[in-house]
């Protein structure tokens, strides 16, 4: 188990990579972007990027706007 910050809330996570996290959350990957410790992680790197204890993960989605 790792303790991470997920969208500013504490979150316990048993997987390894960003890809595992998104699968666990069942987040729609279309229109989604993600940053770890304030660095944007390209989609192509999601399955290879491993999360560490204490990482700060922010997940963003596309919504309607002007």
């Amino acid at each position: 188990m790792k303790d991470i910050q997920l969208n500013d809330s504490p979150f316990q996570f048993s997987g390894e990579s960003i890809g595992d996290l998104l699968d666990h959350l069942k987040t729609n990957k279309d229109g989604v972007a993600l940053a770890v410790n304030q660095e944007v992680v390209p989609k192509s790197q999601w399955s290879k990027t491993l999360l560490r204890q204490g990482d700060n993960v922010l997940i963003f989605e596309s919504i309607a706007g002007g």
Binding site: L6, N7, I59, I63
Partner: peptide
């Protein structure tokens, strides 16, 4: 145009894309 926001992990929003 579209905008971004932090995903609401509790409530999934409609996919407008």
């Amino acid at each position: 145009t579209l905008s971004l926001r932090r995903v609401d992990l509790e409530n999934h929003s409609d996919n407008i894309l």
